[in-house]
Structure formats: structure tokens, C-alpha cells
Design a protein around this nucleic acid. Structure first.
Length: 893
RNA sequence: GGGCGAAUAGCUCAGGGGUCCAGAGCGCCUGCCUUACAAGCAGGAAGUCGGGGGUUCGAAUCCCUCUUCGCCCACCA
């Protein structure tokens, strides 16, 4: 007899590395361009090259791996394309911080040396996160790993810039943009995120220029330090309070500069005093207002790139050189001294912060490159509205749509050194302001032949990642990969980058390849702590996925993530309750292991697949588990197809544990142990069903399923990772067996309940009797007497009346037997009443549906499918009604 | 200011008009080291499905409203 090769205790750390290696060696994850199979493609949301794996990655990548493994098993040419993002600001910041420790800034090194230094850093630590993904079991095609600064990828980025420029969709603009004074770069609207802040609203009086200083106009502002850059005050053109001020001027406080009073529709009359100060260089809206004013206005700059007050006559002496916050305090002090500060009130408002370093963004007037977004957004909107692009959960579609509808131009230039330098060259010859935009560096100005200088800026990191679905495949070259694997299928990502990334990828996809980059966007939730705070480094509330892997195993972590993540819902994990968090997954893995041990210890080398067995020899339990397996296969497949991963996980879990292990394995043990006539059948079916379940579970728990698969007979020479997804086998469907076995379970359950109620020790076998009242229970009893006796620990199950000496409590005087009266549970009269009640309810329901279908009021809120569903419901109820009526007749009531 | 999501057992969550639907895991209680598994087995307690109103023959489920959390968007400075 072949003994089990499995260790007595399941230790994931022993098998995971080895198993992953086996997959790699077999090339299981490498997608082929000429297999002829239908491709299925996911591109990974490329993590920042410097990042290390956190639970968000764990969730996101586990979900992707489930989809990929599922489709791979279904026979599709599955490509999961991995890679990393150079993450301009983030990476530059990391290296700058390291430099700061050496007391240096990037300027000390100079651009070239600094970039060299960043590359060093990237080469040193860049692969970390991808290596970490392997510990999770991610089945990426590592032969296709890409980096957004790879040579080929960079070529695609520059190509896109040049093309869009020549199409007129990229332009250079001089306007107020979001500037991070700490990162020293401009930011896009999306990168400057709003955060609530408790601030103050300062009421400042601007004295009339032609008065004696005692009268003036009061203005409310949150940013008094910008006032030195004011060019005028504006009020609403119809605001009667101020109409009489037409033509007058006021003095900018603390200076001797006179500025006029103008009007603008933009002003909200109800806010503050109804009078607004206009600072075109330091507020984007003020810049717009100034642009709409008649007459010539300057745009004086009073705050520099470091957020310090400039050394300029407009700025009062004591303020110059101060940091913007100090400048605010000092200004307040001076205003108070001159009596021009009327009042200060607390004010809460949303202020834009740098999404990388959380510094308050400083609006800054500068030259930047922009992408004209409206034309690009149109196909992306159309794709969503026509159903070419769908979201799971659906509600995110609205978010996507809304953003695209309101889209504004995208500032893509960053004043950084790490990234794709903009392929634009400025003519340095006097008077010629020509800009040459080209893939290859021009020798000289294409207009005047003068010397040229390349734009120093680099492109927004998202300007490279929006090309990810095809630039990773070698585009703009006409590669096999692009031909075969574009468009892709599913994108799995977090909702917070719908704008940054998802929407822009769709735009790029349609613009450059005239097709969607993916059909479905699956948005996973956020991993949070029990207080529903997102995991974050600063809070220290996170769980390191690798820590979870080493403590509980990758499969346990994956199971926990998948089972805990219904589509798009957040996953809650408690770092103080690691055991509680991961117990279900770990316990399940252990359970699987032990099922494997039991099976392997009893195979005796004579495994015969059920297809080669004689069905006439199948017992009820055999037919039941085969039938149940088919049902579960169908349901799990559907769950995965519909992105209901948590359902798929739970189906596999409960089928294996509650049905296969608890009932079938227990029932089959006598046949499994010995070499009786039924042994061959039992072994065949046990192995078949277990293998089927391992296939179902593989996408979610790849390691342990693969390991068990390797030990089981049959297809052990092949890898489960590339085995076929099971299809339901119609011949095994057996509703009657399912019904009947359910009755066996009910009987056994009833006996066990009574045993517990009577406190019968496990060692004491008891006797149970049923009354021959319930025809179905009797049938089950007759057919499965032995099974019931075994599972319920009965000496005998009979239809006899209990003997006199059992007394009122049905216990024999010597305590050897307790007679379990099952009659009550299946009392005919009660049963008749119960069924009668059900019948009544059913009739009501039928009447309700009929009424509904007759007047169809509900159709207003849902289309034909609902009517269809109601019809189906009615039909099924009708059938059920019939069955109930039959039952009643059979019982003779 | 606009929008979205959540509130179901002690904890974390499924379920989104009717029967399968009041569920799962963890925790808890009782009894078991029964030769696959104590990370287990058998049994059990536990929820007026956040409050209130409405629609319906029927509501955890749909509508309104309130409360509490969370998120996103937004040019009242």
C-alpha cells in the first residue's frame, strides 16, 4: 500500500518556493504569440519602481492572478504583463532624501550625475516589488517585464508627444498652474488634491486712493500675503452696494500702489464682503478674471518657486524674503498696526496639497506643456456610453463619465530631472522663438538655423503610464505582441486612479490604436484597519503581506483577500488580530492538506476514473457527491465569470469542507480503507471529485492545490496551473440522489441532535427508531440504513417501537442504548400542516405575480428583463406548487 | 455646494422584493485527543437586518426621511 508522501502537518513555507519554481521552469506563465488560442490579457498596474509590497498590492495582484489563472485554465492564451513605473516625483524624492542625508542637493550633483544616481538606486532596489509578487504566487509573464523608462518604452512616450504636438493636441501655455514648492515642480489638477484645512478669513481694508485713508473698501481673503500681487479689486457688475465706486481706485495696503476697482461675473455677492482682490500671478481664477478685464494689466509675481516673498518694490521691505507663512503673519502684524485689518474669522476650506509630499500647493504663473483633452475624451466617453467599456462595480462608471465630461487640459510638464525629457528644442537665436518638436534631437533651429537648447522639463509620470497597455508590447513598432494581445481584457485597479490612469489609458488606446485597451475595469476596494482607516505607513496600522505569507502561507492570505473582497468593497484587516484575520484561510489550507493525506493514504495504487467505472455500482453517496460537484463547478464558473470572486471562494470552501469532507469522506471511509467490492469505485470517485475541486480552487489558492495535485494519480505529470478548468458533466447530474442524500443528512443530523441533548457519550452507541409515517424518510432509511447508522453512531436504526423497559426517557436501564424517537420530526399531521401552509403562501405569491404581470407597473423602473424574471418566477412557483400538492396527496392528508 | 458608498450575530462581512434567505468566518458555550485534520469533530447560544415613515398581498431587500461613519468631485476668494 502506497503511503502518503505528505508531511503530517501542512507547512506552506516548505512548498511555496519550490512550487513557484516548478511553474517558472515549465514556462507556465509565458504567453505565446502563436498558440492559436483566444488571448486573455491583463496589464498590471505598474507599481512605483521604488515601492515595496503593501497589502493594497496584495489585494490588487491576488485578484488579477485569480482572473489570469482562471482564464489560463479555461484554455485561453493568458498574458499577465508585469512591470514598474518610474514614478517621477516619488522616485526623485526618495533619492533626494538620501542625498540630503549626505548634506547634498541634486543641484550639487548636477543633472547628469543625479539621474545617474537615481538609476543606480533603481537598479539596486527596483526589482524588489516584482520579486515580492512571486511570493504571492502571481503568475505574471516575467519574460515581458517592462519599465516605463525602458528604451523601447521611452521611444513610445516621445513618439506620442511628438505626434500629439503635430496634431495640435499638445501645446505650450503660460498660465497659473499648481506648484509644489517642496518638490519644485508643477502638478496636474489631479495631483493637487483638496484637503480640508482650518484657516482664517482675513478682512482687510483697502483705503481709497483719493481719500484721506479713513475710508476704503474691505476685502475678505484667506491669503493676505498674496495681496502685494493684486492688480485690482472686483465686484459683481450688478452689485448695487458697489456701483457708486465705478472709476475709483484704492491703495494696496502697506504699499503706495494704487489699483482700480473693476467688475466680474465671477464674484459671488454673498461671500465675504462681495469684493474680491485679483492676484493674477498667484491664483488661477484671478488669472482668468484678469484676462477678461478690459485694459492692460500686469501679472506681478510676489512669491517665488521656494514659496518665499520676492525681493521686489511691490513687496514691503520687512516682508521680502520671508516664507509665505511667515509673510502672512508679518503682514497681519503690519496691517493691525496700521488699523487696516478689520477682522479675522475662523474659516474651514479645502486647499490643494501636493499628492506626493502633502505640501500646500502654490499657484504659480509659468510656461508649461498641456494636452488638449476634450478631443481625446470623446471616444473614451463614447466607449463607456456604448457599453464597450464596463465597470465593476458599475457605479464607478459614473465617476469616470463625470470626470471625462468635465475634463480640463492636462499639464504634463514637470520641473524634475527623473523622467522622459521633453523632446522640444528652443531656438536661442535672437528674435527667433521657434520651438522644434521632434523625436531626434535637431542640430539647429529648423526655422532659422540658430543654436537650440532642449526643454529642461520632463513629462508627467502619468504621461508614460497612460500608454501602458500597448507601449509595453513594443508599440509604435508593429510587433507580434501588439497584434496578438491588444486590446486587452480586464483591468484590475483601485478606484483612486480612475482619473490619473484608467481614463487616460482609454483615451490613449482609442487615439493611437483605435480600440479600447480593455473591456472591463474591475475596481478593487481599499484595505483598511478596524477603524476603517486606510492602511498607511505613517499610521503604522498596516499588515505586511509578506509577514502574513510567512506566518500563514500565501494561500491563506489570498483566500482571506478574495473571500473578504466582494466586488469593490473594502477589506478590513486587524494587525492586532492576525490570527483572527487569517484563520479561515489557514485552517482551510490545513483542511485541504489533510483531505489529501486521507485520500493518498488509501489509494492503494488502483485509481480508476469514474468514467471507466460501472455506474451501477455507485452508491447513493457517490451519485450525490458527483452531482453536487457538477453543480458547484457550474456555480463557481459563473461566479468567476461575473467577477464574484468571493462567491467562488466560498463555493469551493463549503463544497470541500461541508460536503466532501464532512459527509462524503466520512461515508466512504469503510470502502476506502479496505479492499471490498466498493473500494475501486470509492477511490475513483474520491480522486475525481477532489481533483475537480482542486481545479476550482487553484486560481485562489494556487500553491497548495498544485502541491496536492502533484501527489494525486492521474494527471500528476502535468501542472495544475496549466490543467483544464472543469466543465460540468451532465451525466453526473442527479437531482434524485441529491434529494435523497439530503434526507440521509437530515436523519443523521436529527440523531446527532438527540444524542447531544441526552448527553450520550461518544463511546456509547445508541438505537434510533423512525415511525414509518414519512414515505420519503423511510425510503432514505431503507436504502441508506448502514450509512445512517455509521454516521450517527447507531447500533441499529429501526422502525420498531422502543421496548417497555426504556421507560419515558427511552433509555435502557443499563444505559447501553438510548432510543431516539425521530417520529416527531416527521409527524404526518405536522407535515401536512406545514405543507398546507406553504401551499397557501405559494398561492398568494402566485396571485401577486399574476397581478404584477397584468398591470406591469414595475416595468417603469426596469426593462424587459424584469418582466422575464417575473415570468420565470411565476413558472417555477407554479411547478413548486404542483410538487407541494403532490406531496400532500402522497401523505394522504 | 454636488455626488457616491456603508450601517445585518460580540468582531469582520455575504445577501439587494417572496420559497433556498435571517447566513458565513472568527469569537463564545457544551461534549469529544473517534487511527486525515484539536488549525479538528459533534452539538449549541447569539441579530426587532441603524431610527422613523411609505409602496406592496409580502420589505433586510424598493421609495422618502433622519442619524452615524467613510469616500470622491467642486473656481464662494
Amino acid at each position: 500500500m502506497t503511503k502518503t508522501e505528505l508531511a503530517s502537518k501542512y507547512d506552506p513555507s516548505v512548498i511555496e518556493k519550490e512550487t513557484y519554481r516548478r511553474w517558472l521552469d515549465a514556462g507556465t506563465f509565458a504567453a505565446s504569440t502563436d498558440s492559436g488560442q483566444d488571448p486573455y490579457v491583463i496589464v498590471i498596474p505598474p507599481p512605483n519602481v521604488t515601492s515595496v509590497l503593501h497589502m493594497g498590492h496584495g489585494l490588487n495582484n491576488t485578484l488579477q492572478d485569480v482572473f489570469i489563472r482562471f482564464e489560463r485554465m479555461r484554455g485561453r492564451e493568458a498574458l499577465w504583463l508585469p512591470g514598474t513605473d518610474h514614478a517621477g516625483i516619488a522616485t526623485q524624492n526618495v533619492v533626494e532624501r538620501a542625498l540630503a542625508l549626505e548634506g547634498k542637493s541634486r543641484h550639487d550633483l548636477g543633472r547628469e550625475a543625479f539621474v545617474e544616481r537615481v538609476w543606480e538606486h533603481v537598479h539596486h532596489t527596483g526589482g524588489t516589488i516584482l520579486e515580492q509578487l512571486k511570493a504571492l504566487g502571481c503568475s505574471c509573464d516575467w519574460t515581458r517585464t517592462r519599465f516605463t523608462l525602458d528604451e523601447g518604452y521611452s521611444k513610445a512616450v516621445l513618439n506620442v508627444f511628438v505626434r500629439l504636438y503635430h496634431e495640435g493636441l499638445i501645446y505650450r501655455g503660460y498660465r497659473v498652474i499648481h506648484w509644489c514648492p517642496r518638490c519644485h515642480t508643477s502638478l496636474s489638477d489631479e495631483e493637487a488634491e483638496f484637503r480640508e484645512r482650518d484657516d482664517f478669513l482675513y478682512y482687510i481694508r483697502y483705503p481709497f486712493a483719493d481719500g484721506d485713508g479713513s475710508e476704503g473698501v474691505t476685502v475678505a481673503t484667506t491669503r493676505p500675503e498674496t495681496m502685494y500681487g493684486d492688480i485690482c479689486l472686483v465686484h459683481h457688475p450688478e452689485d448695487e452696494r458697489f456701483l457708486h465706486l465705478a472709476g475709483r481706485s484704492v491703495i494696496l495696503p502697506l504699499t503706495d500702489i494704487a489699483i482700480p476697482i473693476e467688475t466680474s461675473d465671477y464674484v459671488e455677492r454673498e461671500f465675504g464682503t462681495g469684493m474680491l482682490k485679483v492676484t493674477p500671478a498667484h491664483d488661477p481664477h484671478d488669472f482668468e478674471i484678469a484676462g477678461e478685464l478690459e485694459g492692460q494689466f500686469d501679472t506681478p509675481v510676489v512669491i517665488d518657486a521656494e514659496a518665499r516673498m520676492v525681493d521686489d518694490p511691490r513687496v514691503p521691505e520687512p516682508i521680502r524674503g520671508l516664507d509665505r507663512d511667515e509673510a502672512r503673519d508679518k503682514t497681519m502684524e503690519l496691517l493691525e498696526a496700521t488699523g487696516l485689518l478689520e477682522k479675522v474669522e475662523p474659516y474651514q476650506h479645502a486647499v490643494r496639497h501636493c499628492y506626493r509630499c502633502h505640501t500646500v500647493v502654490e499657484p504659480r504663473l509659468s510656461d508649461q506643456w498641456f494636452v488638449k483633452m476634450k478631443p481625446l475624451a470623446e471616444p473614451a466617453l463614447k466607449a463607456y456610453r456604448s457599453g464597450q467599456l464596463t465597470f465593476v462595480p458599475e457605479r464607478w462608471g459614473k465617476v469616470y463619465e463625470n470626470w471625462l465630461t468635465e475634463i480640463r487640459d492636462w499639464n504634463i510638464s514637470r520641473q524634475l530631472w527623473w523622467g522622459h525629457q521633453i523632446p522640444a528644442w528652443y531656438c536661442e537665436a535672437d528674435g527667433c522663438e521657434h520651438v522644434t518638436v521632434a523625436l531626434d534631437p535637431p542640430e539647429r533651429c529648423e526655422r532659422c538655423g540658430g543654436p537650440v537648447r532642449q526643454d529642461e522639463d520632463v513629462l508627467d509620470t502619468w504621461f508614460s503610464s497612460w500608454l501602458w497597455p500597448f507601449a509595453t508590447m513594443g508599440w509604435p513598432d508593429e510587433t507580434d505582441d501588439v497584434a496578438r494581445f491588444y486590446p486587452g481584457n480586464t483591468l484590475v485597479t483601485a478606484p483612486d486612479i480612475i482619473f490619473f490612469w484608467v481614463a487616460r489609458m482609454v483615451m490613449a488606446g482609442y487615439h493611437f490604436l483605435h480600440d479600447r485597451p480593455f473591456a472591463t475595469v474591475y475596481l478593487n476596494g481599499v484595505v483598511r484597519d478596524p477603524q476603517h482607516r486606510a492602511f498607511s505607513k505613517s499610521l503604522g496600522n498596516g499588515i505586511d503581506p509578506l509577514d502574513a505569507v510567512s506566518q500563514f502561507g500565501a494561500d491563506a492570505l489570498r483566500y482571506t483577500l478574495v473571500a473578504g473582497a466582494a466586488a469593490g468593497t473594502d477589506v478590513i484587516m486587524d494587525r492586532n488580530e492576525m490570527d483572527g484575520t487569517f484563520a479561515a484561510g489557514r485552517n482551510f489550507a490545513n483542511k485541504l492538506w489533510n483531505m489529501g493525506r486521507l485520500i493518498l493514504a488509501n489509494l492503494d495504487g488502483d485509481f480508476t476514473p469514474p468514467s471507466a467505472l460501472d455506474p451501477a455500482q455507485f452508491e447513493l453517496a457517490d451519485r450525490w457527491i458527483l452531482s453536487r460537484a457538477q453543480r458547484v463547478v457550474a456555480e463557481a464558473t459563473e461566479a468567476l465569470e461575473r467577477f464574484r470572486l468571493n462567491d467562488a471562494a466560498s463555493l469551493g470552501y463549503h463544497f470541500l469542507w461541508d460536503e466532501f469532507a464532512d459527509w462524503y469522506l466520512e461515508q466512504v471511509k469503510p470502502r476506502l480503507y479496505g479492499s471490498s467490492a466498493g473500494s475501486k469505485v470509492a477511490r475513483g470517485i474520491v480522486v475525481h471529485v477532489f481533483q475537480t475541486a482542486l481545479r476550482l480552487l487553484h486560481p485562489i489558492m494556487p500553491f497548495i492545490t498544485e502541491e496536492l495535485w502533484q501527489h494525486l494519480p492521474g494527471e500528476r505529470e502535468s501542472l495544475l496551473a496549466s490543467a483544464a478548468w472543469p466543465a460540468p458533466i451532465e451525466e453526473y447530474r442527479d437531482a434524485e440522489a441529491e434529494d435523497q442524500f439530503a434526507r440521509v443528512q437530515a436523519l443523521v443530523g436529527a440523531v446527532r441532535g438527540v444524542r447531544a441533548d441526552y448527553g450520550v457519550p461518544p463511546g456509547t452507541a445508541i438505537r434510533a427508531f423512525v415511525r414509518p409515517a414519512n414515505a420519503e424518510a423511510l425510503q432514505a432509511f431503507n436504502a441508506e440504513q448502514r450509512t445512517i447508522e455509521r454516521l450517527a453512531k447507531l447500533t441499529r436504526l429501526s422502525t420498531d417501537e422502543p421496548p417497555e423497559e426504556a421507560g419515558a426517557h427511552n433509555v435502557l436501564p443499563d444505559g447501553s442504548s438510548v432510543f431516539v424517537p425521530l417520529g416527531d420530526a416527521i409527524d404526518v399531521r405536522q407535515e401536512c400542516e406545514r405543507i398546507g401552509g406553504e401551499l397557501e403562501r405559494m398561492d398568494k405569491q402566485l396571485a401577486g405575480v399574476a397581478a404584477k404581470l397584468a398591470n406591469q407597473q414595475f416595468v417603469t423602473r426596469a426593462p424587459t428583463e424584469v418582466v422575464e424574471r417575473e415570468r420565470e418566477k411565476e413558472q417555477s412557483w407554479r411547478e413548486q406548487r404542483e410538487a407541494l400538492a403532490d406531496k400532500l396527496r402522497a401523505l394522504g392528508c
